[in-house]
Design a protein around this nucleic acid. Sequence first.
DNA 1: TCTTTCATATTGACATTCGATAGGTGTGAC
DNA 2: GTCACACCTATCGAATGTCAATATGAAAGA
Lengths: 111, 111
Amino acid sequence: MNLQQTELLQGTLDLLILKALALQPLHGLGVARRIEQVTRGTFCVKAGSLFPALHRMEEEGWLKAAWGESENNRKAKYYELTKRGRRQLENETERWARISLAIGRALEVKA
Amino acid sequence: MNLQQTELLQGTLDLLILKALALQPLHGLGVARRIEQVTRGTFCVKAGSLFPALHRMEEEGWLKAAWGESENNRKAKYYELTKRGRRQLENETERWARISLAIGRALEVKA
DNA sequence: TCTTTCATATTGACATTCGATAGGTGTGAC
DNA sequence: GTCACACCTATCGAATGTCAATATGAAAGA
């Protein structure tokens, strides 16, 4: 029933998007490509997951969007981080570090 | 509205429960305590999250439950891993390794 | 003894959040 | 015209959180 191709952990998509945009502004599908690239294909974000997330994050004030042209002369909405977005990236990065450390510790416990 | 004390990433609770029970059978609240202990307080699983998860996992056939007595002579339901549960633990451990590696790589990219 | 109180142990109803699925629009390039 | 790019929306389901409830043994005091 539930083929679950992407393997994305809930709560990590925002972090990946923020990080992708911290390097440079990108349009929506560009974000997806960047994420796929830096995770070496581990995460493949579909449009239907991506755009709702971008809108959510724009409403939160983490992103600012502006219409522009893509590399191929197509209309595209470019997103960039706001100051609050950078702060959020720091928070989520720190949160990730804490969580992955804790789980790592849990998993290394031997019987 | 959303105070979110526990900071649990969706998808990691099952893993932590499986790992906790891999060491020894425990009753519900015992699982919660074990998790809190091995993650050094990072994760504090509330009853309302824990028991639905245990029931879900029992339905999946990963856990087997049996009534017994707790250390304090109270009725308590003890859970232990089934063979399928051990296999699931291996799967989820491997999944976690893959995911945390990918995110780690994404985060270490420099501008 | 009786009863009050507390910690243990479990359960259920409900809301929320997030990502997945599956569709749909518009447009430039060939 | 066809295709690939770029975006959008509606809707669903799974998983977790919140809150409240139940039941029971233990401990303490009248």
